[in-house]
Amino acid sequence: MEKRAHFSGWTLPLLLIVPQMAITLIFFYWPASQAIWQSFLREDAFGLSSEFVGIENYVVLFEQPEYYRAMVTTVIFSTLVAFFSLSVALLLASQADKNLRGGHAFKTLLIWPYAVAPAIAGVLWLFMFHPTLGTLGRPINALGFNWNPMLNGTDAMILLVLSATWKHVSYNFLFFLAGLQAIPKSVIEAGAIDGAGPMRRFWTIIFPLLSPTTFFLLVVTIVYVFFETFGIIDAVTGGGPAGSTTTLVYKVFADGRSGGDLGLSAAQSVILMIIVIALTAIQFRYVERRVQY
């Protein structure tokens, strides 16, 4: 089934791949190599000179308790967002897959949050849950809960999880819906005749058949939480209160941009890069080998 184009010379094929290669080189390899190089340097306080310090930045980094704290925060944050955005999306998709009246409008509306910029999504949720201004924040306090994401780290994390999940549900929803629609209807009907009720059909037939989609979305969602939630965090909490919502990627920004320690920041970037490369590699191997029917 493989289709191959045959070219007589080198000029045309080169011309065809140059744009993609240029983009990859300029926007990925160049900054990536810059980051690696910078992670071995230290700048003076005024940014006028820099000296080679070897792996000292990494040593400093791994001696910081804040770095381990950011790791834990990231793990908690990404686990919660991944769990909620996947399960809510799957629930919505399995409802949308039924032939409901107004289903089309329902599907379209569900996709909208994806079009909202992260920072705007963050501000939106911050306003809604603001302890003194928010349309939802005030009633929560009125009910007797002491809700204040500006002062309480747990509250801040809950708010971040809510906004980050809300924004990513759309994406997962779309893929789950497509995955559900790819399952032959007759297989589900066969399950019904074979005596499996709706819940059992879901867990023994639909869910296993969706597993390639689920796995793909899990990796994509984790990458999303690691990197793209930066805008939300910056708008909603700015990593606070007291560093309780500083994730790994937010710490890169905080140390490099605000703290002015570019070498330390670059070292963190390199570690994040390794994590993403590993995630992607796992995904490719796993998706290609195991979960395909």
Partner: peptide
Amino acid sequence: ADRDIAMVFQNYALY
């Protein structure tokens, strides 16, 4: 499920 029937589908509908 409760009709006590079994069905063979055109596309087999195997799991």
